[in-house]
Design a protein around this nucleic acid. Sequence first.
DNA 1: ACCTGAACACCGTTCAAGT
DNA 2: ACCTGAACACCGTTCAAGT
Lengths: 200, 200
Amino acid sequence: MKVLPRPYHHGNLREALLKAAEQALEDGGLPSMSLRELSRELGVTHASPRRHFAGKQDLIDALAARGFERMDAILGRAAKNNGQVFKTRLTKFARAYVGFALKHPALCGLMFEAKHRPGAPKELLQASDKAFSHGRALFADGQASGEVVEGDPYRLALVAYASLQGLISISTAGKFKGISLDTLVPEIMDRIILGLGPRN
Amino acid sequence: MKVLPRPYHHGNLREALLKAAEQALEDGGLPSMSLRELSRELGVTHASPRRHFAGKQDLIDALAARGFERMDAILGRAAKNNGQVFKTRLTKFARAYVGFALKHPALCGLMFEAKHRPGAPKELLQASDKAFSHGRALFADGQASGEVVEGDPYRLALVAYASLQGLISISTAGKFKGISLDTLVPEIMDRIILGLGPRN
DNA sequence: ACCTGAACACCGTTCAAGT
DNA sequence: ACCTGAACACCGTTCAAGT
């Protein structure tokens, strides 16, 4: 079904734009992701994208929504470790989250910004919410089994989320002087869990 | 054909540009910080900034370096709480760091990016390093007094730094559903400290 | 439906020339 | 030294017109 490889796009321009946009984004950042440049690469006029995306922001939002869908699939798999202790599940989950973010750093930055932009389309917000639902469910499970202290799960998850988000920021920026994430992520999760356990 | 000549910008154009640039940055983000727009605001030609900044990146780097100098002053004061327990000092320090970041969110984002950009000027890297030296010193103090576990201070501080950086990212993005930072920052620091204390 | 071609208003950068 | 004015090559967006 997926043939038509010629640079003249009949019905694939939208897909081709999204793919080329992500490539350009990871290669040279948002400023290098220009509609005109993408059009040039795909062999169409710079006005062609207008048929598929209302404007550059619309392309960005679509790219972000797709990112959250992919993240949702990955986090969904990572969270489905029933029968494990909470600590193991959280560590696996965190590793999957960080792994995805480090594999697509520019895309994740764009997802983060797009999601928080005032006026973000609700389709994007829903995709983001769906992806993050696995984390909330994980913390709820931890509370149900008594492994996580009682309280607002949103707030509890926030601490872990903040740590990971910061880790990703720093790591994405590239300044990680030879410290492996494979050991640092569990280390951070261990410390978080020390604070999440039942009070004594 | 005669047009009234624009008067030369009296005083320091370089200073005026930096000030106007920071304002534009916080108001509308990096894309709204345009050299041409700044020149218009200050009543000079769009080519004038060239005398003071080699290009837009140069202005950005100067803005970032100034930001780190201001941060250095604030963190220096916050870290000078000798005679207090480590936990108190770290919490005060973290509050000062988060406070600065939330007061100047766009500037801090620019500082973070500029610092990690390949090819960042060494003056900028030095300013950043100076600002962060207070945090490293704080952790070294904690180790000297036995309140912080032994080990690489850089790595230990990284966990706390990551948490704060993530907290700032999330908070700056604006999605904090009525959770006060005055209670959340100490809460996060408490949990970090649980993991930093001597092993038992 | 899908794309073109031209136009408009922006942008950063460069450079010879003015004061 | 400091700034101007014009030029160049980009950009996003719009729209009448082609197929």
